[in-house]
C-alpha cells in the first residue's frame, strides 16, 4: 500500500483510547507518533526526571503550552511529583474546552489561586485529585470557585491540602453533583459537619476523612457512622489513623464494614491491635487493606 490517507488514520486513532495501546502504535513510524501526539485525550507524566528535557520538549513542548497547541482535545492530565505553577494551571483551565480530569499527585509549586482557575473555568470537570499535593496561599477559595451551575463532579480529593474550607460551599457543591462517587476531604472539615455532607451524597462509593482531633465526643462518631451507613453504596473507607473512632462505634461499624471492599487505616496504634483484628472480622468482602 503506497499511501494510506492520514485522515483515515486519524479516525482510527480516535478510537484508540488506552495510553498503553497508543504508546505501542506510536512505535510504528514517525507519522504514527505524530498522529498519536495530535489526537491524544490524556497524558500521564509519571516521572518527569526520567525524561531528557529535550525529549519532553520535542514530544510535549514546554509542557502545557505545547499540549495546548498540539492536543486541543485533551481531556485528562495526570502529573506526578512535579513542579506545577499557577500560570500552568491557568493555561490548562483555558486551553482545553473538553477538559474532564486533573490529577496532581505529590505536586507542588502552585497556589489555591491556580486551582481556582481550574474550578472556575473547567465547566465539565469530573475528577480533581490532589492527593499528596500542597497548595500555597490556601484559604479554600478554589473550592468556592466552582460555578453555581457546575454539577459534573465524580471525584474530589483534597485530603492533603492544609487550607480552610467554606463548609457551606462544600455542602452546596456536594448537593448539586449527583454523580459524586469519591470524596476525600481534608482536616479543615470537622467530624461534626461530615454527617451533613454525607446526607447530601447518599450515592457516595468512596469516602476519605482526615480527623483532626483525637478526642471528640463519642456522640459525633456515632452520628458519623450512622451517616456513612446511610450511604448504601459505600465500598471504600479511608480513616487516616482514626481507628479509635471506628473502634468506639462497634455497633454502627458492624453495619458498614461488611460492605467494604477497601479499607485504609494508615496507622494502628499499639494497644488497639486486638480491637482492629476484631473489626476486620466484620469485613467479609474486603479486597484491599492499607495499614
Amino acid at each position: 500500500m503506497p499511501h494510506f490517507p492520514e485522515e483515515i488514520l486519524e479516525q482510527i486513532f480516535s478510537y484508540i483510547t488506552h495510553c498503553r495501546d497508543r504508546n505501542a502504535l506510536s512505535l510504528v513510524s514517525k507519522t504514527w507518533y505524530d498522529l498519536d501526539r495530535r489526537t491524544r485525550h490524556s497524558v500521564f507524566i509519571g516521572n518527569c526526571y526520567a525524561l531528557a528535557p529535550e525529549r519532553s520538549i520535542k514530544r510535549f513542548p514546554n509542557w502545557v503550552v505545547g499540549l495546548a497547541r498540539d492536543c486541543p482535545d485533551l481531556r485528562e492530565l495526570r502529573l506526578k511529583r512535579m513542579l506545577v505553577s499557577d500560570p500552568t494551571l491557568l493555561l490548562i483551565s483555558g486551553s482545553f474546552p473538553n477538559f474532564r480530569s486533573l490529577a496532581l499527585i505529590g505536586c507542588h509549586g502552585f497556589s489555591a489561586d491556580g486551582l481556582s482557575a481550574i474550578t472556575a473555568k473547567c465547566r465539565f470537570l469530573e475528577h480533581l485529585d490532589l492527593q499528596e499535593s500542597e497548595a500555597g496561599n490556601d484559604s479554600g477559595q478554589w473550592l468556592s470557585s466552582f460555578p453555581e451551575s457546575f454539577t459534573s463532579l465524580i471525584s474530589l480529593n483534597f485530603g492533603s491540602l492544609r487550607g480552610a474550607v467554606n463548609l457551606d460551599d462544600l455542602m452546596s457543591l456536594v448537593a448539586r453533583c449527583p454523580n459524586l462517587k469519591n470524596l476525600r476531604v481534608n482536616k479543615a472539615v470537622p467530624l461534626l459537619t461530615l454527617p451533613q455532607i454525607l446526607l447530601r451524597a447518599p450515592q457516595l462509593v468512596e469516602l476519605g476523612i482526615e480527623p483532626r482531633a483525637h478526642h471528640v465526643d463519642p456522640g459525633s462518631h456515632t452520628r458519623l457512622y450512622e451517616a456513612i451507613r446511610k450511604c448504601k453504596s459505600i465500598q471504600s473507607l479511608s480513616l487516616s489513623g482514626a481507628l479509635h473512632i471506628a473502634l468506639s462505634c462497634q455497633f454502627h461499624i458492624s453495619a458498614i464494614f461488611p460492605k467494604l471492599i477497601s479499607l485504609d487505616i494508615i496507622s494502628v496504634m499499639e494497644g488497639r491491635i486486638l480491637g482492629f483484628i476484631n473489626l476486620l472480622t466484620h469485613c467479609h468482602k474486603l479486597q484491599r487493606l492499607r495499614v
Binding site: 500500500m1 504508546n23 506510536s26 512505535l27 500521564f44 509519571g46 516521572n47 525524561l51 519532553s56
Partner: peptide, 28 residues
C-alpha cells in the same frame, strides 16, 4: 498491515520506547 515503512533509526525507536517505560507509562 498498513504497509508503513519504519523510518525510526534504532536509536530513535529506543528513545521513544524509553519514554514509555519511564515517563508516560502506567495510566489507563
Amino acid at each position: 498491515i498498513f504497509g508503513v515503512e519504519n523510518d525510526y533509526t534504532p536509536e530513535e525507536e529506543a528513545a521513544v520506547r524509553a519514554e514509555h517505560d519511564w515517563a508516560f507509562e502506567g495510566f489507563p
